[in-house]
């Protein structure tokens, strides 16, 4: 087990190295010049040229990448062009907000999604199943920026139940709902279909024949066996939720990485963009490693060596 974990962690290094190259190339090859965006209405050609030279943008890309990576291996993600602050510090300041929102959404999506999936599977083709699947379709189809605004107008303006801006727990409710809804919908559909598959298997019939309560059959025998693919999806959804937070944080004014990303891309702040991509990629890789390890907990037959 330990050897497996160490091996997996070592494999992360080439992955992140690849990510760093991709992130670097993408941000530099996309048209758009951070210097010009920064100077805006005051951009004389002379100022732009001077600033570009000072920021080292006139060097060949390889030299710039080498300079960047030398910093990265020493734990320095560079300095933001726009704010002049170290990127690592900026990300560290914003990361907790995004992590809290994402975790809340993962938990909410898992609880709601799996519960609805189970309920739908049990009442297959009944009206409960029908309504849950309709909800799931809605959850997947409705864009978050739209549902976010609707929720603000309903819960924030009409009913005045929840604050529209803020960083407290109450301000977390609306963004969590909006961010979790599509993931919950996917999970509900996934749980339903794997549950239905397992429900038709022999050992379920045996369990029922033994005279076990239906509740025990469903929760202990069916759900546990149906959960492996669902957990995989939860891991993958985590990445999706991090990405989704880009939009949701903008709508709900949360000071997280999502909004930071948008600003970074709009202003072509290369060090910021690269830093975010690296950190998010690392997080994604580690979450999925954790999910892989979780399989053994859910299904004791799975062993790592």
């Amino acid at each position: 087990m330990t050897a497996y974990i160490v091996k997996r962690i070592l494999l992360v290094i080439p992955v992140l190295f690849g990510v760093s190259i991709l992130a670097f190339l993408m941000s530099h090859l996309v048209p758009g010049d951070p210097v010009v965006v920064m100077l805006g209405d005051r951009a004389t050609a002379e100022d732009a040229a001077r600033l570009r030279e000072e920021l080292g943008f006139n060097d060949p890309l390889v030299v710039q990448y080498g300079r960047y990576m030398t910093g990265v291996v020493q734990g320095d993600l560079g300095t933001s062009i726009r704010s002049g602050q170290p990127v690592l510090e900026e990300i560290r300041d914003r990361f907790p907000s995004t992590l809290i929102l994402t975790l809340c959404a993962v938990v909410a999506a898992s609880v709601v999604g799996v519960s609805l999936g189970v309920a739908a599977a049990i009442s297959k083709r009944g009206w409960v199943d029908g309504s849950i699947m309709a909800f799931a379709l809605l959850g997947i189809s409705v864009p978050t920026f739209w549902s976010g605004i609707l929720l603000i107008l309903l819960l924030g303006v009409k009913l005045e139940w929840l604050p529209i801006v803020g960083t407290g727990p109450a301000a977390l409710v609306m963004p969590t709902i909006v961010l979790a809804a599509p993931a919950a919908a996917v999970l509900a559909r996934m749980t339903r279909s794997t549950m239905l598959e397992v429900l038709g298997v022999d050992f379920v019939r045996s369990a029922r024949a033994k005279g076990l309560k239906e509740q025990v059959v469903i929760l202990r025998h069916v759900l546990r066996n149906a959960l492996i693919p669902v957990v995989t999806i939860i891991g993958l959804q985590f990445g999706g939720l991090l990405a989704g937070s880009v939009i949701v944080e903008s709508v709900f004014t949360r000071p997280g990485l999502g909004r930071y990303t948008i600003t970074a891309i709009q202003s072509r702040d290369f060090p910021q963009i690269q830093g975010i991509v690296l950190v998010v990629a690392a997080l994604y890789v580690f979450v999925n490693l954790a999910i892989d390890l979780l399989y053994a907990v859910i299904d004791p037959r799975i062993r790592y060596n």
Binding site: F145, G148, I149, I152, L153, G156, V157, E160, P163, I164, V165, G166, S250, V251, F252, T253, P255, R259, I262
Partner: peptide, 19 residues
């Protein structure tokens, strides 16, 4: 100085007096 990127959310916050 409260940042609210989304225009609709900003107007909503103004209407309820949060900003």
């Amino acid at each position: 100085f409260q940042s609210i990127i989304e225009e609709a959310a900003r107007v909503a916050a103004f209407e309820v007096g949060e900003i």
